[in-house]
Design a protein around this nucleic acid. Structure first.
Length: 289
DNA sequence: CACTTGACCTGTCCGC
DNA sequence: TGCGGACAGGTCAAGT
């Protein structure tokens, strides 16, 4: 999915687009194929207004005036696209992304009192939407176990390294993808940050040095900040709240660049399988040893 | 508890 | 131009 930078991009968009709006109707896909349909969502939504849009890890939190919150996970192919009443006229080039909504991947549609709409689309149906009393969010099992936000100002390199101790017997990529170690890292930014820190993804956590952890910390934050600045990565389905793609893939250094030269040393980038995921490395910069 | 693998879905691409 | 298999941004529930 959308990893931290993509979810953050959606959050910033929704913050500007839907805060203050009042929900007047909710519709969702009731097909058997959508097991995450929010059966109890409508009764807490109708008449409520959106007071805040937050993010924790890869979860979006829409706070409502009713003291309830709508939690949304986009997983691999989820989209949250806002369509305002008069945003684009017919024939506008940007209409191509949104003029067909709702479509067959639309799972939830919220309609606001000014007739604007928010669509939750999800081709692969892994995503979910849940309603919770706002004050209970922090007590959920997920929020109890999820690791710290890597971009938080008070998140230090020391804390970063210390979080990995519980996963010392696995490889660094599997640990980096573990949301209970650090929040928000997915396959793209794992590969990009490991390349930046010159660490082979199959290196055992126990064998990664303090200096290497410091480099990984710095690279991870840099790559995520750059990705947010570029509006995230769009390989295929990801779009922001306005239906637009992000451009980070134009800046990617190894991810999905197998066969191309490493931007640092020109060695041909290779693709392999690590932690069950497609993994991209420069075999010269990132050695197993 | 920590670790690995397969499952959840739909769509696309690649080789035969 | 059809068909099978692998693969795709993420977690989970199982298995060891």
């Amino acid at each position: 999915m959308p990893e931290l930078p993509e979810v953050e991009t959606v959050r910033r968009g929704l913050s500007k687009l839907i805060v203050g709006k009042t929900v007047i109707s909710e519709a969702h896909d009731t097909q058997k194929g959508f097991p995450n349909a929010p059966a109890d969502v409508a009764q807490f939504l109708i008449g409520a207004s959106i007071t805040n849009v937050r993010r924790r890890a890869k979860v979006l939190i829409l706070d409502l005036s009713t003291e309830y919150s709508l939690l949304i996970h986009l997983k691999m192919t989820g989209q949250l696209v806002f369509v305002g009443e008069t945003r684009f006229g017919a024939g506008h080039p940007n209409d191509s992304l949104i003029n067909d909504l709702p479509d067959k991947s639309t799972r939830v549609t919220l309609t606001f009192s000014d007739t604007s709409k928010l669509f939750f689309n999800d081709q692969r149906k892994f995503g979910w939407v849940r309603m919770l009393p706002t004050e209970e969010i922090s007590n959920t099992p997920f929020m109890q176990k999820v690791g710290p936000e890597p971009l938080a100002e008070d998140f230090s390199p020391q804390e970063f390294m210390q979080r990995f101790t519980r996963r010392s017997k696995t490889n660094i990529k599997a640990a980096l993808l573990d949301q209970s170690v650090v929040a928000g890292v997915g396959n793209i930014y794992a590969d990009e940050s490991l390349w930046g820190a010159k660490i082979h993804p199959q290196r055992l956590v126990a064998n990664v040095s303090e200096q290497e952890f410091t480099a990984l910390y710095t690279e991870l934050r840099a790559v995520m900040n750059l990705a947010i600045e570029k509006g995230g990565s769009s390989n295929d389905t990801y779009v922001n709240a306005e239906g637009k793609k992000g451009s980070y893939m134009d800046f990617a250094r190894v991810f999905r660049r197998e066969g191309l030269p490493c931007p640092r040393c020109a060695t041909t980038i290779e693709k392999m399988r690590v932690a069950g995921r497609g993994t991209h490395i420069c075999p010269f910069c990132q050695q197993l040893q």
